[in-house]
Write a protein that binds this DNA or RNA. Structure first.
Lengths: 399, 399
DNA sequence: CCACTTTAATGACGGCATTAATTAAGCCGT
DNA sequence: ACGGCTTAATTAATGCCGTCATTAAAGTGG
């Protein structure tokens, strides 16, 4: 179906992209490693690599061990060739982080948001001042910033400019990209937060090495990111993976999206706490915020039957939701992430069991179900990979 | 992520594949059409096309209209360059069809199956004798058959040899490909029947032109095929799209897969009839087989409240199931197919409404929900496209 | 029958990877 | 310390392939 013409130039471009990607994800590597993993001939690798070194993209980094024979040179991405900014626009805060090309965190800054009413212009302002703040702090020239990736907790529609719908923030078709673009010339990449977190886990966490993985995120809200063939599955307008609002209990509990029986209405942090409150006969759950309330539930489970039952049910619902993902996407790996899922980590065996009861045998046996490795802040890290992914796919040529 | 090396030869290969694919799906076309649609230069197109003509793959087919200027030649796939066999292994019959390269049906044969116990060896036998029968009838030499595509109503796991799990047939890890391969040297392509039907609709039916489409199949069983970027989504072991056994009503009606609350336990033909029977206080539904029983239900809906209610509920469940597909896959088109869905065609508006209530606004608005165009026999047609798809992707070079 | 237009085929050119042959740079044993 | 051996990297010759520019072919219309 792909109807892209190929020319001689595109050959070089593809090979550059292949070598760069390999080097970025698995580096440092020797030229010989690249020869083996790409199937290119030795001169071809040397030729491309010498271009990359000349352009300052790649640097030699010492010789490898050898027992007889000329030792090969290690190659790695030049860490200071360029920098990237990753932004996490959450429900309660905007977090801006600056990374070098080795994805080392150089600086970060955070701005709290008033959950009651979050103005898009305010968020855009935070992003812009945040970019200035982190580049200033690290002494990085704006021209050396490759781009800015932004993960937003909401539905992001790609188009000429990305548009955001976020019920949790009260946003309806907010042209966030335009708002930010008025204040900067840097290339912007806006995406759903679950997808950027999935991207981070895919490159640096529990997804490494998988070709087909699903990242199931449970926090206050519930979402998912699907990676297939190493690439995030986006669908027609990039809003694929809205797992939280799939119907699990037809006609069940009302969800904040307006429908009934959504998965999020059962296993989102707010929903879990709600169900616990109801199970306690309506007595409020102790704790300032959702996080401490969930902790209270977990603590209570050691002693009270009620709390135990609420957690058991949560695992069962979550398992059924995971089973749906397994049946539909047939991943080799399901990674549970998000702060609530991490807090519920002890439920993993129960979740696995529940998924096994609801999923078909064949796809269930193909899939492992694991916890994430990177934590919640990985949304910004994953966002920062967006400009890099584009850069690598373009063969390391700035557009 | 794609780490495939590119060489000068691969340039030609890709361009051959692009031209062939375009010509197959949208032909006949002129060289100029190909120039415009691929972006290749005129000499490049002429060059590749002259190869293809020389190899007998493509033929000129008369001149196009012209008003001034040299008229361009129409090009089309040579219909008798090669032939393909498509097989539909359903729950009640094996159907074998022979097509030429223009996908014209040349011959077909059908063998009934005893639903009670279906032996894999028997099915393999039917396939093999069917191949002989149709090629014999049409006078096609086996060497001119490009390959055999087989659509099976069950979970197909790709690997060295495809393995089939089909609860409806009582099959557990049946090495169907091996069984058939012992009797023929033709290249075999085994896939899930829903996927082959989706492939047929994608190329020749309601999916034409879409890049992201979901084909929802409702028959006795329920399945789906997901097409993304023009390619069938398969997942890790090719069993993606098992929509029928996703949980829609947590803890609900028992399903033949052993779990509870599966979509299939509500909207599969058997389930619909079951629900109708229960609504009638247990009195059996008139009719010999599922098809006539479903017709009886549809007829009764004109006069009786009970039947009307069962259909309304069916539309609501189905709509919720479709909403889940929309939320998770974000397609631009959802196509309802399968014999039961076709019978329920009048429910389409109700299904659309129900989906709109359960899906998120943004992805719902992106998606159109339509009926299929090709009917049930398209499983074999779609299966026959499998060897062709491979052939086109390989640039028209037999391996 | 000639001017004009559009399509198709040729030939010079340049980009690129490949194979084969060198050159570089380290071990190891005597 | 000095050849022999091994592995790494570079250089040279070769051939594939698309592009650009040009020429040939094949129509229409006055």
């Amino acid at each position: 179906m792909e109807l892209v013409r190929a020319t001689n130039r595109s050959v070089r471009l593809r090979n550059r992209a292949a070598l760069l990607t390999k080097l970025f994800l698995d580096g440092p590597l020797t030229r010989q490693d690249l020869v083996r993993s790409t199937g290119l001939s030795q001169p071809a690798v040397s030729n491309v690599v010498s271009d990359l070194i000349e352009e300052g993209l790649v640097a030699e980094a010492g010789a490898a061990e050898s027992d007889g024979g000329r030792p090969s040179m290690m190659l790695r991405m030049a860490p200071r060739f360029a920098f990237v900014v990753g932004v996490d626009v959450g429900e309660t805060r905007v977090r801006v982080e600056l990374f070098d090309f080795a994805m080392t965190l150089l600086a970060s800054v955070e701005y709290p948001l008033d959950p009651a009413r979050t103005e898009p212009a305010e968020v855009a302002g935070h992003v812009l001042t945040g970019i200035d703040a982190v580049t200033g702090e690290a002494g990085v020239a704006p021209a050396d910033v490759l781009g800015v990736g932004i993960g937003v907790s909401g539905v992001v529609t790609q188009g000429e400019h990305a548009v955001v719908d976020a019920q949790a923030l009260g946003w309806d078709r907010v042209p966030l990209e335009q708002l930010i673009a008025t204040g900067t010339d840097l290339p912007l990449h806006i995406d759903n937060g679950a997808k950027t977190l999935g991207q981070a886990e895919m490159w640096f966490g529990a997804g490494r090495g998988a070709r087909h993985a699903v990242f199931a995120l449970v926090g206050s809200g519930v979402g998912a990111a699907v990676v297939t063939g190493g690439v995030t599955y986006r669908g027609a307008s990039s809003s694929a993976g809205e797992w939280g609002h799939t119907t699990l209990v037809y006609g069940g509990r009302p969800c904040r999206c307006g429908a009934r029986g959504c998965l999020e209405a059962y296993v989102g942090a707010e929903a879990i706490i709600d169900r616990y409150r109801e199970a306690r006969g309506g007595r409020p759950v102790p704790g300032e915020d959702e996080e401490s309330q969930l902790t209270a539930l977990l603590d209570a489970a050691a002693t009270t039957e009620t709390a135990r039952r609420v957690l058991d049910e949560t695992a069962a619902y979550l398992g059924a939701g995971v089973a749906n993902l397994i049946n539909l996407f047939n991943p080799e790996r399901v990674v549970l992430g998000g702060w609530a899922a991490m807090a519920l980590g002890d439920l993993l065996p129960a979740i696995r069991d529940a998924a096994g009861r609801q999923a078909l045998r064949q796809p269930y046996e193909q899939a492992s179900i694991e916890l994430c490795r990177l934590g919640v802040d990985a949304v910004a890290l994953g966002a920062a990979t967006l400009p890099i992914a584009r850069f690598l796919a373009d063969g390391g040529l700035r557009r």
